[in-house]
Amino acid sequence: MLGRVLTHLDRLVACDTQNPPRTIAPDHPAIAYCISVLKHSGCAISLTDHGDGCVTLLATRGEARTVVNCHLDTVPADPSWTRDPFKLVVEGDDAVGLGACDVKGAAACMLAAIEESDGAVALLLTTDEEAGQSRCVREFLKQELPYDRAVIAEPTGVKAVTKHRGLATYELAFRGVAAHSSVIGADQRNAVHHASLWCAKAIGLTESKPYDDIRLNIGMIEGGTKANVAASSAKVIFGMRPPPGMHPDTPARVLRDLVQDPENCVWKTRFAAPGLDETDGTPGLLSDYGFAKGDPVDFWTEAALFGEAGLATVVLGPGNIKQAHAADEFVPLDDLRRAAEAYKKVFSDPVDAADLAGTMSDAKGAR
């Protein structure tokens, strides 16, 4: 099956799906190629264009209980690439190309697995994961869906990850009053001072439980014009990665209360999503497909959104996260082989309509 995988990966890598810019449309060559392969394998295709480069392709065959998800977009190629990022090259035991690890290698494995299986299929391909808003997945999960399980592709070394951290980013805009720094009281109305005070309090909060493990990161502080002028505005952009089981909203409320002058601070949530945690259905998902369980990871994936929607969910894909977004990105050939076999187990699932109806009835009652 590795030969099929590399054929698909070669075609997918050749398709420019860099994101940004958000220019992927339903007629994009990568989507057209996937549709051709999937139709030839007996899949029905549903294509949804959400605009702004957000396209969803749902391929179905039979009545599956497990939906498998993979994104087709990549980050922009870093200038330090030493070769053509859109030309797949096999070097030794690795396949090198933009997206080979994150995560077109997984998509190629899925296409090959569907070709070599005859079971039920529910494959969701999206184009906006790297944009950071997850619109495709969020819109998909708003529907009434006939699935109680999900397998999400990200680089995990073909281990089934059942837990990972949440992710949230915020922007604080502080307002002050511009004044000469010699004026008494100017420092009390200096927006940069207020921003700095909040940053100090936020860092202090993370030095004790229960917020000592939220992985707070103050990524940007902007404001002011020069040393002798009290700043009229300042901006702080920060993020955090709370552990599984802690929704970002919980520490966010505490952090927001640390603002000294709330009337002169605008708090904006850029992105907030919980982590992935195990559910009652996770052990069955692992055992039914013979997945090897992986350790929890610190990076966030869209698997968390499927888990939040009530599906037993794991993250499983070829490659190592250290190669994701890197120049001369590669994925081991052995990972591709093993991932294709793992996905084939899912696409060989012989669930029929009667069994599926009973399963979903039980699942909805449990939610």
Rank of each mutant, 00 (worst) to 15 (best):
A227D: 13
A227R: 13
A231Y: 03
A234P: 03
K235E: 15
V236R: 06
I237C: 07
F238G: 03
G239H: 02
P244E: 12
G245S: 14
G245T: 14
D249A: 15
P251W: 02
P251I: 06
L258W: 11
L258N: 04
V259M: 07
D261V: 14
E263S: 12
N264A: 12
C265H: 06
C265P: 04
W267E: 02
T269H: 08
T269S: 11
A272Y: 05
P274C: 11
D277A: 15
T279F: 00
D280M: 08
F291C: 00
A292D: 06
A292I: 05
A292T: 05
A292W: 02
G294Q: 03
A303V: 08
A304H: 13
L305K: 08
F306C: 05
F306S: 00
G310F: 07
L311M: 01
V314R: 07
G317A: 11
P318G: 07
P318D: 06
P318V: 00
N320E: 03
Q323W: 03
H325P: 06
H325V: 01
H325D: 06
D328H: 09
E329W: 04
F330I: 01
V331K: 02
P332Q: 15
P332T: 14
P332G: 13
L333M: 14
L333P: 03
D335Q: 08
L336N: 02
L336I: 06
R337A: 00
